[in-house]
């Protein structure tokens, strides 16, 4: 029993099942196709970004700029489409852009050794300001009017599930296999739990940091492209504030801010739990302002839980030493 609840991931899984059951039993709208569709649309982009964030957190790193990367890449894609660039090329360009955005974070953190929180706080600011600048003279809806094949990306369903959710599922499986089955993926756990040891064993730690940030930036860009296709436009609100939700999802999914811990399953569970929490606010027509209060309290609860686990570990290590 106690062993099962060692990780906040298990608690979250239980909460997720409970919440889903409660919603299904008490709200007549929860299981309607319209509502499930809207939940899918929230889960897919957030989940895709959460995969990158989870890899970063396992490395003991952090990325506050994912929302900006998502917004900026979506707008880059939209601008290219609006000047007539074919959809596949525009998408590719947006992904490369996101990867470059991640590489800048990697440069700041790995090469200039800046505190990852502050570095990505700065790039978040720069990115968000660039979004505002790019859409400054656009109407409130931003860039619209895309070719059919691009819009299809956001609306096609295969077997009742949106294409973008399939993308998320495939990516989740891919990242899971990558970080558990292959030595190049598994080394992030080693790096995250003890960067000094990883360095002295001859791992190229800089390469790990660059790769993790590039992955996170690219996935955020992919989410931005998918959302742009979904809402058929790119505006200033694309990805705004999403970073905190993603970090909360990963932390309640069992990642630790001190690195070395985390699973893809945890990122998925965390994302689902946050999406359902938000959905329940809509279903019960609770005022939107309280969503933030709840999310903030969930984050505080998650870090306090994390701190409690670490303290317990310290104590048991002390007992062993004595």
């Amino acid at each position: 029993m106690t062993r099962l609840f060692q990780s906040s991931r298990d608690v979250s899984t239980l909460l997720l099942a409970l919440l889903a059951a409660i919603l299904a039993l008490t709200s007549p709208y929860f299981l309607t196709s319209g509502n499930l569709d809207s939940v899918q649309i929230v889960i897919a982009p957030n989940g895709i970004i959460a995969l990158g964030m989870m890899v970063l957190l396992i490395c003991g790193l952090f990325d506050l700029s994912v929302g900006s990367s998502m917004g900026l890449s979506g707008i880059v894609c939209a601008i290219l489409l609006s000047v007539g660039v074919p959809a596949p090329l525009a998408i590719l360009a947006a992904l490369i852009f996101g990867c470059a955005f991640g590489a800048i974070n990697g440069f700041l953190v790995a090469t200039l050794e800046v505190n990852p929180l502050i570095a990505t706080l700065g790039t978040m600011f720069v990115g968000r300001g660039s979004v505002e600048t790019l859409v400054a003279h656009q109407s409130l809806t931003g860039f619209t009017g895309f070719p059919e094949n691009f819009i299809a990306l956001g609306s096609i369903k295969l077997g009742g599930i949106y294409l973008m959710l399939w993308v998320f599922i495939l990516l989740a499986i891919g990242v899971h296999l990558g970080i558990t089955r292959f030595s190049w993926g598994r080394q992030i756990f080693f790096y995250g739990s003890n960067p000094e040891a990883a360095r002295s064993y001859g791992f190229s730690t800089k390469r790990v940091v660059y790769a993790a940030y590039c992955l996170s930036g690219t996935l955020a860009a992919l989410a931005g492209v998918l959302m742009t296709a979904r809402i058929e436009g790119a505006n200033r609100y694309l990805g705004a504030g999403v970073e905190l939700e993603i970090i909360i999802a990963c932390l309640i999914g069992g990642a630790s801010t001190s690195g070395g811990r985390g699973t893809v399953w945890g990122a998925v569970v965390g994302t689902l739990l946050i999406a359902l929490t938000r959905n329940s606010f809509n279903l019960y027509e609770l005022p939107a302002q309280w969503q933030r209060v709840v999310l903030g309290l969930v984050l505080i609860g998650a870090v306090v839980w994390d701190a409690g686990l670490r303290a317990a570990k310290r104590r048991s290590a002390l007992r062993l030493a004595v």
Binding site: T257, R292, G296, L299, I300, V303, V304, A307, R310, A311
Partner: peptide
């Protein structure tokens, strides 16, 4: 609880 102050205060920022 020795929590990283940046992360914790992001939580209070939101709430």
């Amino acid at each position: 609880l020795r929590i990283n102050s940046i992360i914790l205060t992001i939580g209070t920022l939101l709430a």
